[in-house]
């Protein structure tokens, strides 16, 4: 009698490609042959998002598949090491269920395997209490044979060192969006330095190839030039100079890539010279606005300055957005 396992490998591959992760899990448990086949070929589980949240004594792993979401809760002190899953992530396996844990979907996740080629759309690490998580993740990223592919990284952390322990292990060709946030817990003495020095980050290939950057911590930068390849920027500079502002304006007018460059600043040095060089502003509510036309284009660069709230933006817009009585500088 003919059975599923008698069918050609090409058909099994096609079947696994069609199946969702639950079916793949389930098939894996049907018999030894299928288990070995699935473990060897590592079919794509259609994993789109990993979300790791660390709380006081629990760690939540949220795994978003194309069709559904699975949340696993790890509790400290139950049966095994809280960080067991890390090594598992490193060689493709996402979850090892630990005895005694409350796990929303324990049975199905016991031996979930991942294809190393799986492309994650987003990885969100939300650190709330422990620094250890990042060290562990770094270990397992290091152990991987290829860099993790994700288009977006969202790190919630208190320390730039932790960013440096993750970012270099992501595939730069895939990474488009970098978001570095502070955790949502209240500040305390553990919250680290007042500002982040980004010079080491700016050297990374991942930084240089990404297109969008958002950082919610005050940053001390190495060079403003390392921010001008992004199409979208939203940051807070601890300090910025009039010369930097002039560089931003000149480079943005010369290149096509930037769409919006927004920042807050804590200290602005020699800003007056820059603003004087822009000429008379158009005043709109609490903003001073200047408009510059891109060479041979219908688009303009709108420079906005909110002096009361210490914010600026350089924004590419259509010239139809310019108020009638404002001047567009050619």
């Amino acid at each position: 009698m003919l059975t599923l396992t008698d069918l050609p490998f090409s058909f099994l591959d096609q079947l696994l490609a069609y199946s969702g992760f639950r079916e793949i899990f389930c098939l894996r448990k049907v018999c030894r042959g299928l288990r070995e086949y699935i473990d060897t070929t590592k079919p794509d589980l259609k994993l789109t998002q990993l979300f790791i949240t660390l709380r006081e004594d629990k760690l939540y792993l949220t795994i978003q598949f194309r069709e559904e979401q699975v949340v696993v809760e790890y509790r400290n002190g139950y049966g095994s090491n809280l960080f067991d899953f890390h090594c598992v992530v490193s060689d493709g396996e996402v979850v090892k269920t630990v005895k005694g844990e409350r796990c929303m979907d324990k049975t199905r996740l016991k031996s979930l395997k991942l294809s190393q080629e799986a492309k994650y759309n987003e990885i969100l690490f939300e650190e709330q209490t422990s620094r250890n998580l990042f060290e562990r993740l770094e270990e397992c990223f290091k152990a991987r044979s290829c860099r993790l592919q994700t288009t977006e990284i969202n790190l919630q952390t208190f320390s730039v060192l932790q960013v440096l322990s993750i970012l270099p292990y992501l595939e730069p060709k895939n990474l488009k969006i970098i978001e570095l946030m502070l955790p949502t817990v209240p500040y305390n003495k553990e919250t680290g330095l007042r500002t982040w020095r980004t010079e080491k980050l700016e050297e990374l290939e991942q930084w240089q190839m990404a297109v969008s950057l958002k950082i919610s911590k005050d940053i001390c930068i190495d060079s403003i030039m390392n921010f001008l390849h992004f199409t979208h920027v939203c940051v807070t500079f601890y300090s910025i100079s009039g010369r930097d502002l002039l560089t931003i304006k000149n480079i943005l007018l010369d290149t096509d890539n930037v769409h919006e460059f927004f920042f807050k600043y804590k200290h602005l040095y020699h800003g007056e010279q820059f603003f004087e060089s822009l000429g008379r502003p158009y005043i709109d509510e609490q903003r001073s606005l200047w408009y510059f036309r891109f060479p041979e284009s219908e688009q303009i660069l709108r420079v906005a300055h909110w002096s009361d709230s210490a914010m600026m933006s350089f924004h590419r817009k259509d010239d139809s957005s310019v108020p009638g009585n404002a001047v567009v500088q050619e």
Partner: peptide, 28 residues
């Protein structure tokens, strides 16, 4: 592939084993 794949929806491994006519490891 779609017909075979759809059979696996919401099934347990034991049910799949029967549906796909696969012997257990012990039988094997």
């Amino acid at each position: 592939c779609r017909v075979i794949g759809d059979m696996a929806k919401d099934k347990t491994p034991e049910e799949l084993r029967i549906i796909y006519g696969i012997p257990t490891d012990a039988e094997d």
